[in-house]
Amino acid sequence: MASAGHQNEGDNVHSDIWTLEHTEPTIFREPSGPACRAYELWETDLDIVRDLGLNAYRFSVEWARIEPARGTVDAAALDHYEQVVDGALERGITPLITFCHFAAPHWFAASGSWLGPDAPQLFGDHCDRVMARVGDRIGAGITLNEPNLEQLLQALGHLPPEAEEAKRAMLAAAARNAGTERYYAANVIPADDQFALRDGFLRAHRAGKAAIKARRSDLPVGVSVAIGDDVAVAGGEARRDARREQVYDFWLHEARNDDFIGVQNYERVWHGPDGEVFPDGPRNGMGTVISYASVAGAARYAYEVSGVPVLVSEHGIQTDDDAVRADFIPASLAELAIEVERGTPILGYCHWTLMDNFEWIFGYGAKLGLVEVDRETFRRTPKPSAGVYADTVRRYREPV
């Protein structure tokens, strides 16, 4: 199971994303506000994970909570995440930590963000203090979440020119408000700056990994990338290969130096000789044709290029129809099981996501969770797909 702090915890007031949500103009549909109140209700959420029979839970430690002002460490925030780690272990769940799931401190964004000369050291310090507290009890570490997201969105054409203009206006306003020359967040990057930020993410990833390994050399560490399953119809091989090189290969090559590569897959894209091909069939909430085999194809390609084991750190489907999700999960896991039989080393699978939450610029409109959350009472109600997921996982664990 996978989740992220800013999307679930609520009131992450010292973060760059919170700042952008409240900037005028903003591209965020609505502010995150209390989110799912997971910072308070974490025990309830871990109980749900346990009751589903799952043995691993990926979550993020929010840097902005731990270091709300530069050089000021909030010991209570570290205490909180230690409680979550220990609470997971008490329930038989292995904690998998993401050290930065997009959101970073506001002060970090205002002082150069990931392009700042001291950004790698600052991120390394964050990783070190988290490891000092809980590093001996976690199962794996993911430094950064989807540092290639901007390249993928651009390649898929999900960002029309007017969206790019709105993004730039928001970031310019945030910079003015902060009294700084520029302002970035990890998932809000102008198209012209994406490769400079990519290099910044690379330096941060390496510094973070070094800090993590310095505390615990045996801990598996990697980075998670957004990766579609790109397939070619007759004559589309060159376009498919160009997409892969543009969006994925930089990080897959870097992963050769890591312990695993995190794969985050939500769609399959078909390439023809003249561009993308759009087959008929049911579509998800992102507008792409539903493909059960997409996660297996993405994992296969990631392993072929990186040569390291794959952790499916996110996979799911955006839909308001839970019956579609209930059908999607077992069919996708069956395809992934076939891929394992073919020889692709899959370390584990983390469904995105536990509960309907704050989906960044789309606010609370996008539904990807196994659990419904009442926006007023924050009561958690498992959907039928949660039971399907639990039953599917149980079947794969039963001895043959």
Rank of each mutant, 00 (worst) to 15 (best):
E181N: 12
E339P: 01
T19C: 09
R37E: 15
D391V: 05
R182D: 12
E376F: 10
C100P: 00
D218W: 08
H126W: 06
R203L: 08
P190N: 14
A210Y: 01
A302K: 03
P161A: 10
A155D: 13
V130Q: 11
F250S: 05
D45H: 07
A109Y: 02
H253R: 14
Q151Y: 14
L311Q: 11
L311I: 08
D11Y: 10
G179P: 05
E376K: 13
A255M: 02
I346C: 05
G281A: 09
V188T: 13
H101E: 09
G124Q: 03
S113H: 12
I261S: 04
N145M: 07
L122R: 15
A69K: 13
N177I: 10
A337H: 14
A77K: 03
C36W: 07
D320S: 13
A334S: 13
G281Y: 12
E162F: 14
Q318H: 08
I361L: 05
D51Q: 13
T23M: 11
T19D: 11
V295D: 01
V13L: 13
D118W: 02
E335T: 06
R137Q: 11
P282D: 12
G236V: 11
K367H: 07
G157I: 03
V289Y: 09
P330V: 01
D47K: 07
F328L: 01
V310A: 04
A210T: 01
G316I: 00
T353Y: 02
L347F: 07
L78D: 13
K367Q: 11
A104H: 15
A69D: 14
A178V: 02
G10T: 08
I66V: 15
A173S: 15
D259K: 09
L46G: 06
D136R: 14
Q83D: 14
Q246P: 07
G141W: 14
T94V: 15
T381W: 12
Y266G: 01
R133M: 11
V225R: 00
A2L: 09
R137L: 08
E30R: 00
L152G: 09
G179E: 08
Y301P: 00
D356W: 06
N55R: 15
R29P: 04
V295F: 00
V263A: 04
T381C: 10
S313K: 03
D51E: 15
G369M: 01
P384E: 05
Y81E: 08
D45F: 08
A110W: 04
G179H: 03
P345Y: 09
D280V: 11
L336R: 06
E164M: 14
G281T: 11
P34L: 10
V308G: 03
Y389F: 15
P34A: 10
K167D: 09
K209Y: 01
G262A: 02
E304W: 13
L115P: 10
A334H: 13
L202S: 12
R256P: 06
M131T: 12
N284Y: 09
K213Y: 00
E62T: 06
G369E: 03
E30G: 02
E237T: 15
F195N: 13
D45M: 04
I261T: 04
I290D: 04
A238M: 08
P25W: 05
D258T: 07
E150I: 14
L252N: 01
F28I: 06
Q194G: 04
T23F: 10
G92H: 08
Y266L: 02
E9D: 14
